[in-house]
Design a protein around this nucleic acid. Structure first.
Lengths: 342, 342
DNA sequence: ATGAAAGCGCTAACAA
DNA sequence: TTGTTAGCGCTTTCAT
């Protein structure tokens, strides 16, 4: 169990002062150093296998070269590609990422923010933000760079990268309309998440644009983006509005839940009710009927978020407050023309 | 952008010395402190919203309360539950986890170990170990606690938690045997991963136990646990041994690849060739024919590994060097009796 | 029971 | 160009 080498050890070996070593090893040291000494030190350091202690450096510089990544649950297939996109982008710049799972529980989120702050993270990327998020708001006040991915906050100062929820919904709605559907319901996401809110708003707008009658009563809000919620809302919605022929769900999990709800009422997908989702989760290819959905860019959203954070960290020109990634309509087997009422 | 509070601020507010505050706030401080002062300090600290700076504390105590978690790729469905098991177990004890993806590339792994060491992690949990892993070996030499999950190393000093690969393979083999198969092939995992090696050994052993003729030539080793490799090995194996009626694959991804390989030869699963996997990945339920496989405990393996690490970190009695978690045979539609040769 | 002081490994003024 | 020195925020030994 060799004690770990310090600058002092290198200094002794190279017969110079610690600060000289520090300068020699600092890639962007502004101080002038003679080539010869600098090189000698580098050689000695490499020979000895010296590795800097970033904890100590961080204490002094107030930079930990560590960023916090907050997600609801790594077990949800939506998040691993995002996390990977973040890590792949940050790692080459020397940043490591501390990962925490919030389970969308506000108190847990607050505690985890503390955990991250205690570790002195230089910035935070959250994929778990609520529209109104006191924890994030506080971070902003403290001047800690925060980027929100996938969701956006109501306060406008937090830079965000989201997918084009609006266009995605419009594409789905147009698809339904083109197939001939006129009574279309929406299982909306939670009201406190921007994804839920934006998609529901797009639904309303889209209905109006297509000249459909007021659809406010055809929107049922789920409490969580979970299958069970999708099922519950679907059953309630269909009970109240048995003439619906198409169901636009705010994400894939709600849509899979809708399948169950529809079947529990003795109806079939898509013959009786067409269903769509959002996100294009990998499982969908293989759950029959294969879900028509909107494909979002997952790895890329992580990548874009990481770049934004890097920019903020390196104090470059202020980046965009909002970045919207394009989406793609994926038509599969869960949608078809409505049955003629003859 | 308020400057962050330090012990000094609390000390000033409570009108005591910094060290007194440090003692009062340390839950397991051995030094005696008067109840009254201690309580007063705690109240003041809470009122002020003081949060300790673990970076500074870590510099002094040489404990960062951070552990490194190394996985091949968070995007692979096998790993998120393991990571979640680790995080859920460690978090209540005040440990945060730094996550890194190795992609099973040795050089990358070495660099990432450095990244973790520079951050002063107190220990490392790796789900990405190679049987012969120089990086891990060095960590052990340095006295940094390491736990290997899912895989084990050839050197016997690294504690590991694995699933019962041996029994899993025997169960699959018995299942084949009971169905009447006698010519059984094995698409093995990479030789440099313990999972590949243990499963291949179990296959050989099992064949012998069932009185099957020497099966060494019915084992084809893949280079990576990937679908494309499964397909390649399957085609090669079936070309050389067209009389095979059952294929035991070392994991689910290889098995899915085997599906493609079998079909490319104009054969059907399971009518012509029965196929099995290992791990029970979530997708399988919905890829036809649903794969017969072995279910391993994913969350639990993370949990067990985290507990082992906690034990090592808290310097308790030495834990077990090896922990083997039980597995379960999941019979689905990819296996059936061989066609009678009549 | 509390205060004083040293020091963890590093960086950054300031001197020389 | 290099050395000296102070100090980041905390813990801990040693005094008191």
């Amino acid at each position: 169990m060799n004690k770990r080498l310090t600058l002092k050890d290198v200094a002794k070996a190279a017969d110079v002062h610690v600060s000289t070593v520090s300068r020699a090893l600092d890639p962007n040291s502004s101080t002038s150093l003679s080539e010869e000494v600098s090189n000698r030190i580098k050689v000695v350091a490499k020979e000895l296998g010296y590795r800097p202690n970033r904890i100590a450096a961080g204490l002094r510089t107030n930079k930990s070269m560590t960023v916090g990544v907050m997600i609801p649950d790594i077990t949800n297939t939506l998040f691993p590609p995002i996390v990977r996109g973040i890590e792949s982008t940050l790692e080459p710049f020397g940043y490591a990422t501390i990962l925490v799972n919030t389970d969308n529980i506000p108190e847990r989120e607050l505690r985890l923010i503390e955990v991250l702050r205690e570790r002195g993270v230089d910035g935070i990327i959250t994929v778990a933000a609520h529209r109104n998020d006191p924890g994030i708001a506080e971070l902003i006040e403290l001047g800690i760079p925060v980027i929100s991915l996938n969701r956006r906050l109501d306060i406008s100062t937090v830079p965000y990268v989201i997918n084009d929820d609006n266009v995605g919904m419009k594409l789905l709605l147009k698809h339904f309309f083109d197939l001939g559907h006129r009574r279309i319901g929406h299982i909306a996401g939670p009201r406190d998440l921007s994804t839920g809110q934006i998609r529901a708003a797009a639904f309303s707008e889209g209905c109006k644009a297509h000249g459909l009658p007021d659809c406010a009563d055809l929107i049922y809000y789920s409490d969580r983006f979970e299958e069970a919620e999708g099922e519950r809302c679907t059953v309630e919605l269909l009970r109240t509005n048995p003439d619906i022929t198409a169901l636009l769900c705010a994400n894939d999990r709600l849509a899979i839940g809708a399948y169950s709800g529809i079947r529990s009422l003795g109806l079939r997908v898509p013959e009786d009710i067409s269903v769509t989702g959002f996100n294009d989760s990998p499982i969908l290819e293989s759950i029959p009927p294969r879900l028509t959905t909107v494909r979002i860019q997952k790895f890329e959203i992580g990548q874009a978020g990481a770049k934004l954070l890097l920019n903020a960290l390196q104090g470059g020109a202020k980046g965009p407050i909002g970045t919207v990634l394009p989406v793609e309509l994926i038509i599969r087997d869960s949608t078809c023309a409505p049955r003629s009422e003859s």
